[in-house]
Design a protein around this nucleic acid. Structure first.
Lengths: 138, 138
DNA sequence: GCTACAACCTCTAGCGGTTAGAGGTTCAAG
DNA sequence: CTTGAACCTCTAACCGCTAGAGGTTGTAGC
């Protein structure tokens, strides 16, 4: 029923030192220990860690994840607070999407370079002179 | 004709410690120095640093930029390498967009919470569905 | 029970890519 | 020739990990 840190690591694709790091910074609760001080985990920890990993992959900062997690287990908190926190994260995500889409278009036009010589390569040109950008970054 | 590090910084929007860091890691050539050991830059350095800054803004890693710079300095070579580097980066960006859009949809449905009673708050519900047993740390 | 050994433990130190500060020196305008 | 903004080096911090050294524990097979 209970998992070792290695099993938790395999089930979540989060490396062992990272799990210990998350515990250290308080993102994961301190694990239960055996007599010999080895960590043991419950299935709930797998889900929680998967949530963290997914959020990290999406570029959320640790502090943001801390907020998202606390949202989930603070049913006593007023709905308005939860709403505000979630909305702020949503706005961040929307902004990130917009910026990434601009970047995608820019990279796509750069990739249109058809393997000629560097002298005519659009990638090198665009990087050398950002006035050629499709969109202003920032 | 020659620029101080401060002037180079203003012209490229790259902070002074960052310029010195780039020199330290060999991304920028060692600057020529005055008698009193202060760095002086030529207009060519402005172009090179703008190239670097722009590539960083586009999310290229330092090592990728190092490769792109060496390509840019050899206009006789095929741009296939630059193409490959850019293409790999583009794929990453596209993947990130897809993931963020999925998350945005999740968050959007959570935000549909209309400030009702806590027991019926959709935000708590949705978060609970996505990561059950999200125990609060501490 | 006992042994072998994979897996665990803590601790320190490093990574990339910057940024901030302390404490001292240089350059150029007035 | 004085002033002070801008420069210098050096160290250390930041985030979010990751690797290694050196020692201990848990468990499977005998």
């Amino acid at each position: 029923m209970s998992l070792t840190i290695g099993e938790l690591s395999r089930q979540t694709a989060v490396k062992i030192p990272t799990i210990r790091y998350y515990e250290q910074i308080g993102l994961l609760a301190e694990a239960i220990r055996t007599e010999g001080q080895q960590r043991r985990y419950a299935p709930g920890d797998v889900r929680r860690l998967n949530f963290i990993r997914h959020a990290r992959e999406l570029g959320f900062e640790i502090e943001a994840i801390r907020q998202l997690l606390s949202l989930a287990n603070h049913p006593d908190r007023s709905c308005g607070d939860a709403h505000a926190i979630t909305k702020a994260h949503l706005d961040e995500v929307k902004d990130k999407i917009a910026r990434l889409m601009a970047l995608r278009d820019e990279l796509e036009s750069m990739v249109a370079c058809d393997n000629g010589q560097v002298a005519e390569c659009r990638i090198i040109e665009v990087l050398a002179d950002h006035g050629q950008c499709l969109h202003e970054t920032h």
